[in-house]
């Protein structure tokens, strides 16, 4: 059993340790080349293709193509629910600091119920589960925070760094390196 004092110091030191580790041996590694963006999905299969009209090369140029919509980043909500949700995250942090991890998780669950896109709540949830030693749960929640923080480099980097730490702790060094590189690639965009 981990004592609450240890948890407290882990809690405070975790981001510092992660930041230090991010500047560690990985810096000298060759730059990470991201995986191909195309997911392993097949395009239309036979029964569907059969009905698709034969596509001819149109004479009209790209000019006539309507611009594609870029992937949306999730805006920060300004609803009363969001404010209350943030307050709950604050309270959860206090509980986590005092070693009451389960109580912290309860508050974070409430924060998520009030605002499903509260990335901080998912980030803290990941930290709580990591402290409890459940890497899988921690990964599930940090992934959700990463999804929510897209377009917000400061928070996104923090989530990437924590994800790398979780991966390292669960023995997935290679994956951790890749995520760390993603985090480092955001350094330029930090505000």
């Amino acid at each position: 059993m981990m004592k609450s004092g240890h948890i407290k110091s882990l809690w405070i030191l975790a981001p510092i340790l992660i930041s230090i580790s991010s500047c560690g041996p990985y810096i000298s590694l060759p730059p990470y080349s991201p995986p191909p963006s195309t997911p392993p999905y097949r395009t239309e299969t036979a029964p569907a293709k059969k009905n698709v009209p034969e596509l001819t090369s149109p004479k009209s140029t790209n000019k006539s193509v309507i611009a594609n919509q870029p992937s949306q980043s999730i805006p920060v909500s300004k609803t009363p629910q969001h404010l209350a949700s943030l307050e709950l995250v604050k309270k959860a942090r206090d509980f986590a600091l005092s070693g009451k991890i389960d109580t912290a998780i309860e508050y974070l669950e409430r924060a998520i119920e009030l605002d499903s896109y509260n990335g901080d709540a998912f980030y803290e949830m990941a930290r709580c589960w990591e402290i409890k030693g459940d890497h899988d749960k921690a990964l599930a929640f940090i992934d959700r925070s990463i999804r929510i923080f897209q377009g917000r480099p400061n928070q996104l980097r923090k989530s990437y760094l924590f994800k790398a730490a979780i991966l390292r702790a669960s023995g997935k060094e290679e994956e951790a390196k890749k995520i760390l590189d993603l985090a480092n690639s955001l350094k330029g965009a930090l505000k």
């Binding site: 963006s37 195309t38 997911p39 999905y41 395009t43 009209p53 034969e54 596509l55 001819t56 090369s57 149109p58 004479k59 009209s60 006539s64 193509v65």
Partner: peptide, 20 residues
């Protein structure tokens, strides 16, 4: 899903393709 989007322009309403 990225990679499954259509890549060809509309064959029905493209200039010069009315006959088709």
């Amino acid at each position: 899903i990225k990679g499954t989007e259509p890549t060809h322009l509309c064959p029905i309403h493209s200039r010069g393709n009315y006959d088709e």
